[in-house]
Amino acid sequence: MIPAIEVKQMHKCFGKLQALAGIDLEIKTGEFFALLGPNGAGKTTLINIIAGLTRATSGSARVMGYDVVADYREARRMLGVVPQELVFDPFFTVRETLAIQSGYYGLKNNKSWIDEIIHHLDLADKADANMRTLSGGMKRRVLVAQALVHKPPVIVLDEPTAGVDVELRQGLWRFIRELNRDGHTIVLTTHYLDEAEALCSRVAMLKQGNIVALDSIRNLISGISGCSVRLRLSPDTLPPALQPLMSRCEAEYYILALDEYSQLEQVMAALRTAGSQVLEMQVFQPDLEEVFVKIMGDVEIREAVAVPIT
């Protein structure tokens, strides 16, 4: 089967800065895929090249088999992109914006699908309001709607939930999931790793323009051994002996990261010695966030660019 997205040896330089350093990536049709990485990792740059908004320095990209440069019209017809930046055309209303966008794709009588999108994204009240008058979250919804007007088989969402309230976030993901079930390929970027973990089957992690991890979420998580322990104690202090194991605090809970399950024994012993009483205790499999932190910390990318000290 033709992959939904196929990227080969993609390099992109902005002057001296290498934003993408040879990306190879294949996303199968029907996948729900996440591109993760810290700020500046190159996620948006990669998406822009796939969408034809930026030209690659070298390498190639295909969408549903169509080269994004040579067969740009077909490639773009296959793709719907929600850009990261909150952009809009202040001259038009929501409905005009969607009708115009759908016209660009050559679709004339698209009203019923546009109505459906407006309904799903909860934009009905604002359908005839000018884009200028919408709140930030509303503008984001219109961006999502614009990406969907032509029912593209491949949908790319670059941080679609940044600045969006909880209710819409849930509504949006429900809608996107439905589209995925109907066979649309979904690629998203997000800094909310729980979101990616709940939705996606496979992720690629980028760091400084390199893919440093590419696997199913299950494999990535089972790849790191050990577990996390969440504790609530009385008195509410962590014994000094356990401080080195602490990964983070959440309200009155202490979260410890253990390399192996056998370390549980030591934890219990330390608590007993300190005279702490355990009020609550849960043992977790590591989550995607832990995998992410570990991978980003572990991988040291040897930089070709030497930074002169002035």
Partner: peptide, 17 residues
């Protein structure tokens, strides 16, 4: 205007030749 406000992307993303 479209370049500075960024909404030129809507044209650039489309299959318009």
């Amino acid at each position: 205007q479209s370049k500075i406000t960024g909404n030129l992307v809507f044209v650039l993303l489309s299959p318009l030749s």
